[in-house]
Design a protein around this nucleic acid. Structure first.
Length: 139
DNA sequence: GCCAACGTTGGC
DNA sequence: GCCAACGTTGGC
């Protein structure tokens, strides 16, 4: 199983909005970046991800699950864009801020720290474990 | 609100 | 295929 990070501006679509979608989850559409799209194409059902609030909060707030493989993004102007579906799994016991990630030596190479602009990012197994440990999440 | 960093576009 | 110009993102 692989781990990921999904970024969203909470004033546009935040954790509470994803919670409101329930079991059916939400199409992660609107991504128009090749790296982000390729990351979504690599996802498997059951993969987990962090849900990160950009601009406002700047913190990982919850854990999401991939519930549909990459499929055409119906909001895209052409056929080259795909998206997966995700649903909220559980809230992190304590949000992990960008500042905290930057201050943690074990997260020095996390994509969130090194390339903050990428909207769908891979997270390594070690980074995932570190984030959950810092948050107090026991799985 | 500013601007640095990054990705994309398009002229050559 | 290079690279300057441009648009967008997102931290500050």
């Amino acid at each position: 199983m692989a781990y990921w990070l999904f970024k969203s501006e909470p004033n546009v679509f935040g954790w509470d909005d994803l919670i409101a979608k329930g079991e059916a989850g939400e199409e992660w559409d609107g991504v128009r970046n090749y790296q982000a799209r390729n990351n979504m194409r690599a996802m498997q059902i059951g993969d987990l991800g962090l849900f990160y609030h950009s601009n406002i909060g700047k913190e990982a707030v919850g854990i999401v699950e991939v519930i549909a493989l990459a499929h055409p993004d119906s909001t895209a102007p052409d056929t080259k864009w795909d998206c997966v579906d995700i649903r909220a799994l559980r809230k992190l016991p304590r949000p992990i801020s960008l500042d905290e990630a930057k201050a943690e030596p074990r997260l020095r190479e996390m994509v969130l720290v090194t390339n903050s602009r990428l909207s769908v990012q891979p997270v390594s197994d070690a980074e995932w474990a570190t984030i959950l440990e810092l948050s107090g999440d026991r799985g």
